[in-house]
Amino acid sequence: MTSTAFLQYCLTGISIGGIYALIAIGYTMVYGILRLINFAHGDIFMMAAYFMIFAMVDFALPWYVSIILVLTATVVLGVVIEKVAYKPLRSAPRMSIMISAIGVSYLLQNLATYLFSALPKGYPTIAFLTKTIRIGTLSTSVVTFITPILTLAFVFILIQLINHTKMGMAMRAVSKDFETSQLMGIKINRVISFTFVIGCFLAAVGSILYFTPRPSVYPLAGSLPGLKCFIAAVFGGIGSIPGAVLGGFLIGLSETFIKAAGYSEFSDVFTFILLIVVLLFKPTGLFGEKITEKV
C-alpha cells in the first residue's frame, strides 16, 4: 500500500465515520433521556433524503433554501413521531415503547415505498459540494473533505450547549433522574422534544453529507446505516456523546480498511461481530461507565 493510497483510505474512512457519528449522536441522546433505542432514527435519515429530492428536484428550489427546508421538515417529522408514537407510552413498560419504535421504522419504510416507489431515485447535486479537489497527491470531493470538519464542529457546539445552557442543564438532570427532575419543575416534555430536535437535525445534516457523494435514495437506504450507527453508539457506550462520535469514526475507518484489504464482503460482518463482542465483554461500551455524564 503506497502512502497516497493509505491517506486516501484514511480520508474516506474518517469521512464516512463522521456521518456515522452524527447519526449515532441521535441514538445516544434519545437513549440518555428516555432509555429508548429509537429504531426509527435510520428511517428519519432516509426521509430527510426524500425531502431533499422534493425540495430541489420537484420544486426546483436553490440549494440553500432546500437545506433549510430539509432540516426543518426532518426536525418536525422527528418531533411528531415522538408526540404520536412515544409520548402516550411514557408510563408504559420500556418494551412497549421500543416495539413502538420498530413499528414506526417499518411504517416509514413502507410509506416511502408506497409514496415514492422502490426504485432508487437520484439525489440532487449541490454543485460546490461535489467539486473534485486535490490536496497534494490526494483527490477527493469537497463533501468528503468537509464532512469530518462539520462533524467535529457540531459536536463541539452540542457539548457547549449541554454544559453551559439552561436547557443543557435540564437535559443532564433528566438523564440522571427522570422523576426527580420533574418534581423540581423541569418541563420534561420540552426537554424530550428538544432532544429529538437535536437528534433529527444532526440526522438531516448527516443525510445531506451521506447522499451527496452516494446519490441513490431508496426506501431501505436508511436501514443499514441506521443499524451501523446504533452499533457505533453501543460501542462508544450508549448514552455518551463522545463515545458515539468515537464509535462512529472507528467503525467508518475499520470498514474502509477492510474493504481496502480486498475483503469488502466482510466489512458489514465485522461491524456486527463488533457489536456482539462489545455486548459480551464490555456491555457498557468504551465510555459507558461514567453514568453521571450521561446525556
Binding site: M1, T2, T4, A5, Q8, Y9, T12, G13, I16, T144, R214, S216, L220, A221, L224, T256, F257, K259, A260, G262, S264, E265, S267, D268
Partner: peptide, 20 residues
C-alpha cells in the same frame, strides 16, 4: 480485481485500490 456487496453505496475504498 475488486468485488462489492449487493446494495453497496460507498465505492471509495475499492476505487482507491483500483487507482493505485
Amino acid at each position: 480485481d475488486e468485488t462489492y456487496q449487493t446494495n453497496e453505496s460507498d465505492f471509495n475504498a475499492i476505487l482507491t485500490s483500483v487507482k493505485a
